[in-house]
Design a protein around this nucleic acid. Structure first.
Length: 573
RNA sequence: UACCCGAUAGUGUAAUUGGUAACACAACAGGUUUUGGUCCUGUACUUCGAGGUUCAAGUCCUCGUCGGGUAGCCA
């Protein structure tokens, strides 16, 4: 749309300012431009039969984002037409997750179940129009007469039942006179259609199950294809956005609404669902991981669920940025997990105060530091922004550093501490390693003996001599011990969905629990706080934390150039 | 073997709708740095194939190739 159009039509909906220009936005822009719609209405319609995951986040950001961008509205709708699979637990978690992601449906929380009366009326209308009939074939016979992908089906012997008989039977289905599986209401379309969805699909089936919302009012429940288009129509949806597997269902979506002569008939638009490397996305597989206790629950930080990512410490902003970056298309694709990681780091980098903690402690005794002496060193919360303020960090004779920051026989590219080498302690002093203490039986390094240079307090040498690295540390006498949960990929294979047994690709090292030492300033931190532990990663205070037992989830590591160098050297050998 | 859909750097997505193929991530190289972080600079790598229309094709047409979806009384 050019500026001239804006001048001509100053009251048109605001233009999309998200910067993206995918095929769905193109359709909407065109619809607004041609006047097909004055405003748009979308909806996010999950079935409450599981927890939302990152793939749903894509759909949420799309539907709510579109509404925002074009000045329309987006509804939240529970697509709850199958009581045997659905549960109130999921209804609640879905709302929590959408809200947390940063989207608001105001008073527009809807349930397909709330439209059951209208749907029933419409069904009688179809029967009266001669476009639906009660079929009394068994499940098996229905299947065997449907035909195959390459051959048409056969018409049901019940297909030409008189309208009055259909009406009577359907009403008695509703009244609960028949057992499950004995009858079904079918649309009368075309048993020879090349599109199997059009071969007299079921509209209503008998389910003597109580529904989380309508209780025992109904014993017949509408099928998805029938319920979804009607729900959209009732809510005034203009663009009904769904995933690719519903493409073949679109003719049926349109057929129902055409036969029912409804006023509102949305355009169904399909987009490719999200896949991400090193994870699985199907609700069935996620449910399996939970049920078989491969993870601790739906909100286990290793899960790609929204609740899992939340608990891990991902931010809503990071997930929204990710969804904006991956775009929308019709090609089935798999996004690199590293893009998600990038978005998480990008946001966390901006909002996390820096503090110090040691995951795998190595004791260091500073021989020339006076016994009993303690200094409070000033340490800023952000290296480049003084407005974040600072805190005091105690320094004393015995400290802990990270085990991997010392090597007895360092390779050329190792810049950290080694025998005879001098390094800087962050915001502290320069120290030099003078000897290594080993366990006499195992030979393991248990302690380092170092000396410090008192003139380097704060981290600078008066003679301007340089060190090759800066280490994080905590004072042994002042550190608080805490639990750290170090997460890695749940799967070792880039595409765990490939092949039959995705469980065989579960990463046995997806969680490492350690007792770490954190600086004393962290004593007062609260559940939900975020920090960058310098040189390690971003951490999130888990809800398992107790006053005397803090638990930190490692949200994500910092980018680790050294690890990359090591890997390269190893593979080169 | 029926119908539907898709294919642009390694990955994902753009290209004023027929007019110089680009952005982000990843990779690689360098610079800055009291985080091997951040930040900055640079390098390498792209239109599935064959025809056709056109002054001009990633874009339009034809035929292929490859990939995905579809035979629930699931959604």
């Amino acid at each position: 749309m050019n500026s001239e159009d804006n001048v001509k039509n100053p009251n048109s909906a605001p233009l999309d300012e998200s910067g993206s220009n995918d095929f769905i936005r193109a359709i909407i822009k065109e619809d607004l431009k041609t006047g097909k719609h004055q405003t748009i209405r979308t909806r996010f319609p999950p079935e409450p039969n599981g927890y939302l995951h990152i793939g749903h986040a894509k759909s949420i950001c799309l539907n709510f984002g579109l509404a925002q961008a074009f000045g329309g509205l987006c509804n939240l709708r529970m697509d709850d037409t199958n009581p045997v699979k659905e549960d109130i637990e999921y209804v609640e978690s879905i709302q929590e997750d959408v809200r947390w992601l940063g989207f608001s449906w105001d008073d527009r929380l809807f349930y397909a179940a709330d439209y059951f009366d209208q749907m029933y009326e419409y069904a009688e209308q179809l029967i009266k129009q001669g476009q639906a009939y009660v079929c009394s074939l068994s499940r098996e016979d229905t299947k065997s007469t449907r035909g195959t992908l390459i051959e048409g089906g056969q018409e049901s012997p019940y297909r030409n039942r008189p309208i009055e008989e259909n009406l009577d039977l359907f009403r008695r289905m509703k009244a609960g006179e028949f057992e499950e599986g004995t009858h079904v209401l079918r649309a009368k379309i075309d048993m020879n259609s090349p599109n199997i969805n059009m071969r007299d699909p079921a509209i209503y089936r008998i389910r003597k199950a109580s529904h989380h919302r309508t209780g025992d009012k109904w014993c017949i429940y509408p099928m998805y294809d029938y319920a979804h288009c009607i729900s959209d129509s009732i809510e005034g949806i203009t663009h009904s956005i769904c995933t690719l597997e519903f493409e073949n269902h679109r003719p049926l979506y349109d057929w129902f609404l055409d036969q029912l002569h409804v006023k509102c008939h949305a355009q169904q638009i399909e987009f490719a669902r999200l896949n991400v490397t090193y994870t699985v996305m199907s609700k069935r597989k996620l449910l399996f991981l939970v049920k078989e206790k491969h993870v601790r629950g739906w909100d286990d930080p290793r899960m790609p669920t929204i609740s899992g990512m939340r608990r891990r410490g991902y931010t809503p902003q990071a997930i929204r940025n990710f969804c904006a970056k991956i775009g929308v298309g019709k090609a089935e694709t798999t996004v690199d997990f590293s893009l998600l990681e990038y978005c998480v780091r990008e946001d966390l980098e901006k909002i996390s105060p820096r503090v110090m903690a040691v995951m795998h402690p190595l004791k260091v005794v500073i021989e020339n530091y006076p016994e009993g002496q303690v200094e409070e060193l000033d340490a800023p919360y952000h290296p480049d922004d003084p407005s974040w303020g600072s805190r005091k960090v105690p320094f004393s004779r015995v400290i802990y550093i990270e085990q991997e920051d010392f090597m007895e026989n360092p390779p050329k590219k190792f810049f950290r501490l080694a025998p005879g080498r001098e390094v800087r302690l962050r915001y502290g002093y320069f120290i030099k390693c003078v000897s290594v203490v080993k366990d006499p039986t195992t030979g393991a390094i248990v302690e380092l003996r170092c000396t410090y240079d008192p003139s380097t307090k704060g981290g600078n040498a008066p003679d301007n001599r340089r060190v090759k690295s800066t280490l994080h540390w905590v004072s042994a006498a002042h550190a608080i011990s805490a639990e750290a949960r170090l997460y890695n990929q749940l799967f070792t294979k880039e595409s765990p969905d490939e092949g039959k047994d995705f469980l065989s690709f579960i990463n046995p090292k997806s969680l490492e629990v350690v007792t770490c030492y954190i600086e004393p300033s962290l004593a007062t931190c609260k559940v939900g706080d975020r920090f960058q532990f310098e040189r390690i990663g971003y951490f999130y205070v888990d809800l398992d934390s107790q006053p005397n037992h803090l638990v930190f989830n490692r949200t994500i590591t910092l980018k680790d150039t050294w690890a990359k160098i090591q890997q390269k050297e190893q593979t080169a050998e």
